[in-house]
Amino acid sequence: MSSLRLSRSIYDAMRAHGEQTYPHECCGALLGRFVPAEAACNEFGGWIVEANVRAGNTRTDSAHNRYQIAPIELVKIEREARSRGLDIAGFYHSHPDHPAQWSPTDFEEAHWLGCCYVITAVANGKATVTNSFFLAGLREEEKRFEQQTIELTGPGTELPGG
């Protein structure tokens, strides 16, 4: 199983975001660096997240069970990542009163191969389980979600976002 490494503060910030938008889904981006397994002295290979950016959920028509980040917001998030020497490592969203497992909609709408999709279940307004799924596969037609271990470590930053 691959790993996603991030700080406790980023982990807590994602979960707090899900509680704040409950009963609607929250969403945001994760910025970080990809460390190939062979380059890591401790055999860790994967994304190290250094910041999270909150994004607005444009699915106001069905915000309790759908999310979408406006592409222009992604353009700006990517610009912010570049300015910090980081890449978009993945995205996060919440599942209000629903398990922290990817849904058929999550899978169908997932297109960032090689990135992480973090899902937090929020039950009755309280964040419960948080899981990360790596979108594996070399092309859209071969994509699949693989659950990852979340490793909590180091400092992190929540950047202002939409």
Partner: peptide, 11 residues
């Protein structure tokens, strides 16, 4: 020119 795959989903 930015190439941006979409981001969406939901439970």
């Amino acid at each position: 020119l930015s190439i941006i795959p979409s981001i969406a989903g939901g439970c």
